[in-house]
């Protein structure tokens, strides 16, 4: 009985690969769930305004997307991968070893992460060090023993005498979220690095360093509020002592209810995020496999749509969906890369 399904599967596989090998008439996109909401909108516009089929977009996460992307050249592999971080050298090498040697990098805009509280409370001015001391699972011993100890701080006042004496209560996304990863990487690690003893660990014990800098406390001060940012905003509105961690677009849409804390002296505002002075912001990217251009129809059209002013411009439809556009000169540079299909030349 085992021979039959295998024989059938083989027969089907052969018949399907022969029809498949001939062509794929849609663009296949994988990658980051943070970029997914923007990429899907562009794909939909592209599908509706051109004769091409709408690209197919899978949300696999940045790392998973790059792994699929680098697996090889050929229509069974994706054409484009979205990423909420820059590609790593190791991934470029992996790509190259599989024959994917020309990759076009397009930065699409920025994503800012804010720490916000209700408008009825006072606005906070924090440093990354304060955020790390308030939210990390282990912090350097405040008594100066030089060891890492379980985070003893219960109020903001414990963290920094300049801050008010209210209990630390931060609502934020769960570990499965990309926003949480970026928050840990940019805010917690940013504060963590300001301690020499932890910074020294980076060379000797990279894993220990990562664990110390990226682990969020689990004693109830950081509350995992699910992926629904609307819900966090409702809770902040009801509780003036609580803080929330979410993407800038939600702050922008609810600026009548919540205010973003000033971090390292910079306010979370559109301009500050787009010029990079706000510390908890990151660029979003997608990568295109140059070898597929020409064999899979629609890649160039999708690139043109994504890099058009009506999509990623200051008043484009992506800004409506919460993407922070790049400054005009950066947009011009990446639009030129997209138009000329300029491949990435090392990091």
């Amino acid at each position: 009985m085992l021979n039959k399904p295998i024989a059938l599967a083989v027969a089907l596989a052969i018949s399907s690969t022969t029809t498949q090998a001939a062509s794929r008439d849609y663009v296949s996109i994988v990658g980051s769930s943070t970029v997914y909401p923007f990429a899907t909108v562009v794909a939909e516009y592209f599908g509706k305004t051109s004769d091409m089929k709408t690209p197919k977009i899978e949300s696999t996460g940045s790392g998973g997307g790059l792994k699929l992307f680098c697996a090889g050249v050929g229509i069974e592999h994706p054409d484009i991968t979205n990423s909420s971080r820059r590609i790593k050298q190791s991934e470029i090498d992996k790509c190259a070893s599989n024959g994917v040697d020309e990759i076009i990098e397009i930065q699409i805009g920025y994503d800012g992460i804010v720490l916000a509280n209700s408008k009825s409370a006072e606005r906070m001015e924090l440093s990354l060090r304060d955020i790390f001391l308030a939210l990390a699972k282990e912090v350097p011993d405040p008594n100066g023993s030089g060891n890492l100890v379980t985070n003893p701080h219960t109020t903001w006042n414990d963290v920094n005498p300049d801050l008010p004496a209210i209990r630390i209560e931060v609502l934020g996304p769960p570990p499965t979220s990309g926003t949480r990863d970026a928050f840990a990487e940019l805010a917690l690690e940013g504060g963590c690095k300001s301690f020499d003893m932890i910074k020294d660990m980076k060379k000797s014990d990279n894993l220990g360093y990562k664990a110390a800098c990226h682990t969020v406390r689990e004693d109830g001060a950081y509350i995992e509020a699910g992926e629904n940012d609307n819900l966090i905003i409702q809770k902040l509105d009801a509780n003036p002592d609580a803080f929330g961690v979410f993407g800038f677009s939600f702050l922008d849409q609810n600026s009548d209810k919540v205010q973003g804390s000033v971090i390292n002296g910079v306010e979370p505002e559109f301009e500050n995020i787009s010029d990079g002075s706000y510390p908890v912001s990151r660029a979003l990217y997608f990568y295109v496999k140059k070898a597929h251009i020409g064999s899979v129809p629609g890649i160039e059209g999708y690139l043109a749509e994504f890099t058009s002013e009506k999509a990623w411009g200051d008043e484009g439809y992506l800004a409506d969906k919460g993407l922070i556009p790049m400054p005009t000169d950066e947009r011009a540079r990446f639009a030129a890369d997209a138009a000329n299909l300029t491949p990435l030349k090392g990091l």
Partner: peptide
């Protein structure tokens, strides 16, 4: 592992979905 990586069938296709669910319902 088998249908996509070994036989190189297309991703996201109902054909592969059907094959996987065949194994599950057999």
């Amino acid at each position: 592992a088998v249908f996509l990586n070994f036989f190189g069938m297309p991703r996201s296709a109902p054909l592969v979905g059907g094959l996987v669910l065949t194994l599950m319902t057999l």
